[in-house]
Nucleic acid binder design. Structure first.
Lengths: 186, 186
DNA sequence: TTCGCTTTTTGACATTTATCAAAAACCTCC
DNA sequence: GGAGGTTTTTGATAAATGTCAAAAAGCGAA
């Protein structure tokens, strides 16, 4: 399973832990456009993406604003809701047919308790996601819309084929019209 | 020690762990305006603030842009540099006379190895900092400069007495002049 | 291949915030 | 209690991006 391979890059996964993960990780297949988590609903699952593309978005004044994209070998969840058990402020949808691995919050907490080494995995993954978020934060503060767009296509060129320009524009913190104009002048 | 009290809110701290933390945690006192970490220098320490106010800032086109403030009972470090061991993109300075607890990266890694329960503490603290960063990220995307300012003074009114308006303005993602105008019209 | 829907682009104009310069207010320390 | 520095405010103008509306392009299904 891709998830196990992914985790074993962080620390050695014992056979016992492997079995435990396998027993709680559900492989699920979802068609494009499926809503995984609805806005205002508690998100009690962590998803690992084996295949496909998922996005989280907010509603701001009735408009969908993309908060993140997640693709192969990445985790997706409404982090805030998952950790705090509060209703999710964001909606999560599959932008493509997806193959995911689903782990529930309670199963994850059990893993943390029974296999102390998973705490290390959790810490390191969280640290890495923190750094990615900080990078985006700085990007939005210091770079112009054009720079952010160029940065995105250089780092993740395939996203342009996989998501609509409107979804990408709001991810970059601009409107679709502005993104269209940026593209026109390049 | 305040740090131990703080950590014991997360999990029970055994006597052995308490001793281990005490043996690696250095209490330091710094006068106002001390630079704790210089831009481009690796940051190999984590600081816990017992007393005082600290800020991290970037340079953007020669100007200081506040990235964060940290005060009593909070951690401060150049997170990116601390985790990746790359040079710090930010400078960290004491805005007031400070009493800090300093733990080095290697000592922290030793704690993680010797006391598995510290992994749990590290994970939970990182999760909480992630959520705080996400909240700020959304704040900057969805709220106007005025709303961000009002939000800040309602959540942390004393900051206005402790940091200059210029430092606060760049923290909010606006210029000092804009913040001044916002205050004038309230 | 064309109809109908969705996505993308274009145009005109509005809004927010930045920039640069200078004045005013505020400290602090001799 | 002023001199000199720093911080904050004010003014005029510019730049970046948003808003609303409509046209154009793209695309899947009959």
């Amino acid at each position: 399973m891709i998830l196990l391979q992914h985790l074993s890059k962080i620390i050695f996964i014992s056979k016992a832990l492997e079995d435990a993960i396998n027993s709680v990780a559900k492989e699920i297949t979802l068609p494009k456009n499926t809503i995984l988590v609805n806005h205002k609903e508690r998100c009690r699952n962590l998803f690992f993406i084996q295949k496909g593309l998922v996005r989280g978005y907010y509603y701001d004044e009735g408009k969908e604003i993309t908060n993140w994209f997640a693709q192969e070998e990445e985790f997706a969840t409404s982090f805030y809701s998952f950790i705090t058990n509060e209703p999710s402020p964001e909606t999560i949808e599959a932008l493509e047919d997806c193959q995911l691995i689903q782990i529930s919050y309670t199963d994850l907490q059990d893993l943390y308790k029974k296999f102390q080494e998973t705490e290390r995995i959790g810490r390191i993954i969280t640290e890495n996601y923190y750094i990615k978020l900080e990078e985006r934060f700085l990007n939005i503060r210091f770079r112009s819309a054009k720079e952010r767009y160029q940065n995105l296509i250089s780092k993740n060129p395939s996203l342009l084929q996989r998501a609509s320009l409107g979804q990408i524009a709001t991810y970059l913190g601009i409107t679709q019209e502005t993104l269209s104009r940026i593209r026109a002048e390049l």
